[in-house]
């Protein structure tokens, strides 16, 4: 997303409408269009004790929120890094607003990924007790850390006094956040035990594949609208700060 569209409230409003429709379509498709997953082992999940595949039943509908939200987190961290580099090159304060917006929205979608994943895993490979699915495998850990990195950037910004130093720190930390997502997705290759590597089995059912694609588009639109919304407010905050300084 470039700096431009969000400057106009109309574009933000249009994006918000599209995001809402996208989210509603995702909800409809994932609850009424896709069948309940009753055949054994269509999604690759291994129980810790035996190596058997287990039946996911209704819980697999979490997938349609969990996966697009993970993509959205990736977009947020990448955009934060792009914003950091762009600010260092151009020194335009729009990019600062983009980095901050991405981290704020990244916190929200990252929390969605982590919580939906944990509650799903409690059923899928835990004992059913809340929290039993959290097994510290690399993908879970690195996603948690990415979430902490988003939080750390926002905390750092609040703590640094001088405006120049604050903007510099934001940009540099944004660039440091960028590589964390590739590490998250690569981490799945190392020390892999429970988290599925790919979903090709699940996607072989045409309804599920369609819903997954639609959900990705829908959630991305919702993400874009959230970032645009936060961007508008952050730009306003910058303007207020300028007014106050003037």
């Amino acid at each position: 997303m470039s700096a431009k569209p969000a400057q106009s409230p109309l574009v933000t409003l249009a994006l918000a409408g599209a995001g809402l429709i996208g989210a509603l379509v995702t909800l409809y498709l994932s609850y009424f269009y896709t069948p309940v997953q009753v055949s054994r082992g269509t999604l690759w999940v291994v129980t810790p004790d035996g190596g058997n595949t287990i039946n996911l039943y209704e819980s697999y509908r979490i997938f349609f929120v969990h996966l697009p939200a993970a993509y959205a987190t990736a977009v947020c961290s990448t955009l934060a890094a792009i914003g950091g580099a762009a600010w260092l090159l151009t020194r335009k304060e729009q990019w600062q607003a983009i980095i901050v917006s991405c981290c704020e929205v990244g916190l929200a979608v990252g929390a969605i990924v982590l919580l939906t994943g944990t509650f799903w895993a409690d059923y899928a490979w835990g004992s059913g007790r809340i929290g039993s699915g959290w097994n510290w495998e690399p993908r879970l850990t690195t996603m948690l850390i990415l979430w902490f990195a988003f939080a750390a950037l926002l905390v750092l910004r609040r703590a640094i006094d001088g405006e120049k130093a604050r903007e510099m720190m934001t940009a540099v930390y944004g660039i440091l956040i960028g590589p964390l997502y590739p590490l998250v997705s690569k981490a799945v290759e190392i020390g892999q035990t429970s988290h599925p590597r790919n979903f090709s089995d699940l996607l072989s059912a045409p309804e599920i594949a369609t819903t997954k694609h639609a959900a990705t588009v829908g959630i991305m639109l919702a993400l874009a609208s959230l970032i645009a919304l936060r961007y508008c407010w952050n730009r306003l905050g910058q303007r207020i700060a300028q007014e106050r300084a003037a």
Binding site: T141, T142, L146, A152, L156, A159, M169, L180, L183
Partner: peptide, 26 residues
């Protein structure tokens, strides 16, 4: 080099450095 100049820099470095270096720790 940046947190050293901020208020509460000691705590800030811990907060800022841990997320970035967790892949290294892993």
């Amino acid at each position: 080099s940046a947190t050293g100049r901020a208020r509460g820099g000691e705590a800030l470095l811990t907060i800022a450095l841990l997320p970035v270096t967790v892949p290294v720790f892993l």
